[in-house]
Simulated assay, not measured.
Amino acid sequence: MHGGPATVKGLLITGTVGVGKTTTARVIGEQLQKLGIPHAVIDLDELARGWPAPAEDPFNMELELTNLASMAKNYRAAGAMRVVVSGVVESRAAARRYEAAIAMPMNLCRLKTDLERVRARLTERHVPGPLRDWHLRRSGELDLVLDEV
């Protein structure tokens, strides 16, 4: 992150499923706390967790952006100088929408690691079944999408 504590900024950590976005965001939050910098850490997956998702928005991005805008506003009002967000961002246009939702300049950071490592994490994280299978398939698909972006 650039700038001193007086600079209000966002950081959006993206990458394929299972790469470590949420863990990295938490660690950054811990470091900001040690530095005494007021901040918030937000996991986008939780903001989109509503069912059923509209057919035209299967990942609930609109709900996610609405919730993010509300939360970021509340955190800024409470004094947050940094907002660290973790989640999947599949395009530059989507990145601009997330930046608009947090209403502050945002740096985008993509985490990348070997897909074999990602798939091992996903296998440990999810019980065998359709959800795990989906995540395993999605990890490679999403990694390719992010490479193109």
Rank of each mutant, 00 (worst) to 15 (best):
L68I: 00
W51L: 11
R97I: 00
R96F: 06
G79Q: 08
V88G: 02
H126Q: 02
G36M: 10
I37E: 02
F59C: 00
L63M: 11
Y75K: 09
E46W: 08
Y75C: 08
R110L: 11
E90I: 08
A77Q: 14
E116R: 14
A103V: 04
V83F: 01
A40C: 06
E116F: 13
I42F: 00
K34N: 14
T14R: 05
A94P: 00
K34E: 15
A77R: 14
I13R: 01
R96E: 13
G10R: 01
A53R: 12
M81C: 09
T7W: 12
N74W: 10
G36H: 11
V27W: 06
P58F: 02
N107S: 12
G10W: 05
N67S: 10
V8F: 03
G36D: 12
G50F: 15
C109N: 08
K21D: 03
T16P: 03
L11C: 12
P105M: 09
L35T: 01
I13D: 06
G3Y: 06
N74K: 13
K21S: 04
A72N: 06
R121C: 08
D45R: 05
N60H: 09
G15N: 05
R121G: 03
G18E: 03
R125M: 01
S91I: 04
T113G: 10
A100V: 06
D114F: 07
N74D: 09
C109F: 11
E62S: 07
K9Y: 08
G87P: 04
I37F: 07
A103G: 03
A103C: 03
S86Q: 08
G3P: 05
I37N: 00
A103Q: 09
A78W: 01
A6C: 06
N67R: 06
M104R: 10
D43C: 05
Y75A: 07
V84A: 05
P105G: 09
L68M: 01
H2Y: 10
A55E: 14
Q31S: 13
D45F: 02
C109L: 15
L11W: 04
N60V: 01
L111V: 02
V84W: 00
A78Q: 07
K9F: 07
N60K: 03
R26E: 11
L11N: 02
T113S: 14
T16R: 02
S70K: 13
M61T: 00
L63T: 09
E56A: 12
K9S: 12
